[in-house]
């Protein structure tokens, strides 16, 4: 049966079946909703949940999809990003999944979204009150690579024994001269639980601190849900003499001239040519729509002048 025929059947029925609105059955949603409420009540604590098999493989965001499916309703507007971009495979397919299974509006504009599902980035535009950001998490346990036994890590969280994590950060400094963790940089939530913010670049860690939006984290394979309520202290671990620092980029975005944003490297040829562009595609497009230009914008290459400190390349 082609998808067009399926679509015709759905159109005939007027709507998808209510019972599996947003794919999951109601009992599963209740179980996940209970885990979400406890997660909010215990910020940073990983609540076990009975993760379901989803129509996509582990690693594609089954945890995030289950959380989104349990909170989303017909009034929501969904944005899905994959490393900041709305137009990559993971983002496109999850967005299409919910457009079909929950008939929700979708958007690429951060400000318009009520629910944002993300694979590892927080949008550049500050989130506002009432928005929910859902993170896809591969390995929720920040202590897992230090202590493989769940029984032990559970005890360590229970008694707030986080010395091992500090030793790990110290060893980084001793061996490499700096804390060599660029993503999944551990944070302490509300002064209690150490939490893995998913493999988000540490550039985004400061955005988690006292965010106006509710942050929910879903790990499908590892069967954990956790949360950070709005206006909650989220502190990246560091030392007095080696304070936490985010990445800095030397040049602005080549397309929109944006600075103080997280940039992706794009290889242009096999001669070493490369450019750096905003990882947040919506932010970059919005800036360009407002007339901002980077050094490699098509019209800059034609002779107009660019934003930022780079001069237009001579064409």
């Amino acid at each position: 049966m082609t998808s067009a025929t399926l679509h015709d059947i759905e159109a005939q029925q007027g709507a998808i079946a209510d019972y599996n609105f947003a794919y999951l059955d109601e009992q599963t949603k209740r179980m996940i909703r209970r885990a979400i409420l406890k997660g909010i009540a215990i910020p940073g604590y990983q609540v076990p949940f009975a993760s379901r098999e989803m129509p996509m493989p582990y690693g594609w965001g089954t945890g995030g999809v289950q959380v989104t499916a349990s909170i989303i309703g017909p009034d929501d507007t969904l944005k899905v990003i994959d490393q900041g971009a709305d137009d990559t495979t993971n983002a496109v397919s999850i967005r299409a999944f919910f457009a079909r299974m929950a008939k929700v509006r979708t958007t690429t504009h951060t400000a318009e979204a009520t629910v944002i599902q993300t694979r590892h980035r927080i949008p550049e535009e500050p989130l506002h009150e009432g928005q929910v950001i859902v993170f896809q998490v591969p390995i929720p346990e920040p202590l897992r690579f230090l202590e493989p036994r769940e029984t032990e890590t559970r005890k360590m969280h229970a008694v707030e024994d986080y010395g091992l994590m500090h030793v790990k950060l110290y060893e980084d400094i001793a061996q490499k001269g700096h804390i060599a963790t660029n993503y999944a940089y551990p944070v302490k939530v509300k002064g209690r639980y150490i939490m893995d913010p998913s493999p988000t670049p540490k550039f985004d860690n400061p955005k988690m601190h006292r965010s106006e939006a509710l942050q929910l984290y879903g790990a499908g394979r590892e069967m954990r849900i956790y949360a950070i309520p709005p206006y909650t202290d989220v502190v990246s671990l560091d030392f007095e003499d080696y304070p936490f620092e985010i990445q800095h980029f030397e040049e602005p975005c080549a397309l929109c001239g944006g600075t103080d944003v997280f940039l992706d490297e794009v290889i242009l040829d096999d001669q070493g040519g490369r450019m750096f562009v905003c990882s947040d595609s919506d932010y970059c497009e919005d800036r360009r729509a407002h007339g901002h230009r980077g050094s490699l914008s098509p019209d800059i290459l034609d002779g107009a002048s660019a934003d930022g400190d780079k001069e237009g390349t001579e064409a």
């Binding site: 949603k29 909703r33 909010i40 709005p230």
Partner: peptide, 20 residues
């Protein structure tokens, strides 16, 4: 009535209320 949609709305209110 309409349990799927109504429970979703009620849950979202509850989630927002618990988060704030």
């Amino acid at each position: 009535g309409e349990p799927v949609y109504q429970s979703q709305r009620i849950f979202r209110s509850l989630m927002d209320a618990m988060a704030r």
